[in-house]
């Protein structure tokens, strides 16, 4: 057997090493999985539609939704007033989208607050460890040992019924969960071999943070946010309904629902439309969240 008796035919060494399929990053893969999930894509479409509606919906019909006009009081839905008018003659269609805008905005800002406070707090806990960690964990435990709505209500009592108070009150308990998850994740990552390897290879703290910590954390944070947003929308509506959140002249879905309840025996549509919009928004967020969980969590993959 002599090597020169054999020649390679058909392909060169270079060709053999070529990667024929495109490399797929984590995010591309997640997006591909999400795209294959019809329920999640439908919810995404609904959310995009909702986003468009809360931006343009109020000006869509060109009606005045703030000034009272008693000549058009309590009109049932027709071609002029698509969702009817409320007991002060204001176009409900426009008002619902303004209300949804406020509700979604509150949910998004509260989620952002929760994320920022939670990750920073969690990172500090994981970084310092020792008694700092213990103390900070104790604080979380104390906050968590009160039903969160009670804390929210107390804060609302102190700060009054306005948007700022509501944001503070909603996010004041919500960050605990994010902080715990961040702490756990960072502690776990710090012990992992690949972070150790990166450090041995001379990667600075910034590189470790942005190349290893952030990509690992971000999927957890996205999932956290996707469950937090519908929760905040719920809480806002609930608090406003009880008269503890926003109050009328301000418009939010909760305010509209509580106004609708007062007239529900005679004009049920005034209650049903805001409720329906609230449910659709929350359901879309929940279903998208489920889809994201399947797409992002490697442990759930088959």
């Amino acid at each position: 057997m002599q090597a020169e008796k054999f020649i390679i035919r058909g392909y060169s060494g270079e060709e053999a090493n070529r990667i024929t399929r495109p490399t797929i990053s984590y995010w591309k893969d997640a997006w591909r999985r999400l795209k294959r999930n019809p329920v999640a894509m439908a919810s995404l479409a609904v959310l995009v539609l909702m986003a468009v509606m809360v931006v343009f919906g109020p000006s869509f019909r060109g009606m005045d939704y703030v000034t009272m006009n008693f000549s058009t009081k309590n009109k049932v839905p027709d071609s002029t007033f698509w969702f009817g008018t409320d007991n002060m003659g204001r176009d409900l269609f426009s008002r619902i989208w303004v209300g949804a805008r406020a509700s979604i905005l509150i949910a998004l800002v509260a989620t952002a607050l929760k994320m920022v406070v939670g990750t920073v707090y969690g990172a500090v806990m994981a970084h310092f460890g020792g008694w700092v960690d213990d103390l900070m964990m104790r604080i979380i435990e104390v906050i968590n040992s009160v039903p969160s709505l009670l804390v929210t209500i107390l804060i609302m009592m102190v700060l009054g019924n306005n948007m700022f108070a509501l944001l503070v009150a909603l996010s004041i308990t919500a960050w605990c969960n994010t902080a715990r998850q961040t702490r756990g994740m960072i502690k776990q990552l710090r012990e992992s071999e690949y972070v150790y390897a990166a450090e041995v290879l001379g990667a600075g703290p910034m590189r470790v943070i942005f190349k290893h910590y952030v990509p690992n954390m971000i999927s957890i944070l996205i999932l956290d946010a996707s469950t937090a947003i519908p929760g905040f929308i719920f809480s806002e509506a609930g608090l406003s309904f009880l008269g503890i959140g926003l109050k009328a002249p301000e418009i939010s879905l909760g305010v509209l629902i509580s106004m609708g309840q007062q007239t529900m025996d005679f004009y049920p549509y005034q209650l049903i439309f805001p409720c329906a919009v609230l449910c659709v928004i929350v359901m879309a967020f929940n279903l998208l969240g489920d889809g994201l969980r399947n797409a992002l969590d490697p442990r759930l993959r088959q």
Binding site: F234, A237, I257, M264, D265, L271, C279, V282
Partner: peptide, 22 residues
């Protein structure tokens, strides 16, 4: 369960009240 989780107490209560009592 997804459907039930997406509808708050509040709305369930109001709707049940509307339908069965109203």
């Amino acid at each position: 369960s997804v459907l039930l989780i997406s509808i708050p107490h509040l709305i369930f209560g109001l709707m049940l009240q509307k339908i069965f009592a109203g």
